[in-house]
Computed example of a mutant assay.
Amino acid sequence: MKQFDLKSEFIGMPLKKIKENFRFPTFINNINSVIATGKILEKEIQTTDFKWYQMNVLPYHVRHENRTNGVIITFVDITPRVNDLKEQEKLVVEHELLLDTIAHDIKNPLVGLNLSFRLIKDLKDKNSDKFLTLISNHEKSLQEIQKVINGLVESRWEKQRYQAAVELIDLPNIIEDVRLSLSQQLIETNARITHDLKVGELTFVRRKLRSMLYNLISNAIKYTPASRSPEIIVRSYMEDGYFVIAVKDNGIGMRSEDQKTIFDKFQRASKSVDGQGVGLYLVQTIVSQADGKIDINSELDKGTEIRVWLKS
């Protein structure tokens, strides 16, 4: 009753005349499809108050006539799930960034400190007891720091390996989860996501695949000028023994020189867009760890297509 203003006198009227609170309503087409096919339809829809519902459309089958002449529609509030997905995505990005920072930004300076201490130890004046004691204490402290960082990195990765189970994944479901996570951005920018999936299933780590698609689609939205609505298409197909996922947009594009460094950490195609320059770096890291490859085709003011190649 929250989504339909139903009254008894509406019985017999065309459903399209009944007032409803859905954004981008297509439920009449969905009803016709269920009646025509006799198959259950499940989809997520959003209402004008920006809540999300799981809509299930079931065929109403008249047995003695052996035909479907109506439907039963149920709605389940999934707004908390959508909000949870958004929070989980933030945590995944923060977790990946933390691991990267520990593994690279902190360990590298420690290597430099090690080299510095070796140079100090090689100095000719080693007669001072105080000097030698100081060097010894510093070395012990450095070793303890190294142990802590190594332990932290190893424990994080061991936990991640345990959780990162490879499984058979339904790609349309992952795309839909990403779409739900980005629902607010899609609404604000009037963005449209379509897909052309020649292959719909692949074996991979669910969290990592979702993180990749989230970053690619999120970037496609962010790097589209305000003067036009983002048009994003996700394609999948097999080529040369690889499962290929391609994400194409109609955004600002980038220069050829920027394409060479766009996957480097903290690199961005445009400084005018908010962000840390970490998203594509994480995508490239995930792909590299899976022994895959990634390429990019972009043209200024005409858009960008990024293809991820994963071993099948």
Rank of each mutant, 00 (worst) to 15 (best):
K2R: 10
D5M: 07
K7W: 07
M13C: 06
P14D: 02
E20L: 01
R23F: 14
I35C: 02
K39W: 01
L41P: 00
D49K: 15
D49P: 08
W52Y: 15
R63S: 14
H64I: 08
V82S: 01
N83T: 05
L110N: 06
V111C: 01
G112D: 07
N114K: 15
N114A: 11
I149R: 00
S155M: 05
Q160A: 03
Y162D: 10
Q163H: 09
E167D: 14
L168Q: 14
I169S: 10
L171N: 03
L171D: 06
P172A: 05
I174G: 00
I174V: 15
D177P: 04
D177H: 14
L182G: 02
Q185Y: 10
E188L: 13
L202K: 06
M212R: 02
N219E: 08
I221H: 09
T224F: 06
S229A: 10
M238R: 12
M238H: 12
E239W: 06
F243L: 03
G251D: 04
E257N: 12
Q259K: 12
K260Q: 12
T261Y: 08
Q267A: 15
S270M: 03
S272R: 07
D274N: 11
V278D: 11
L282T: 14
I286W: 05
I286E: 11
K293A: 12
D301R: 13
T304H: 12
R307N: 14
L310P: 07
L310K: 06
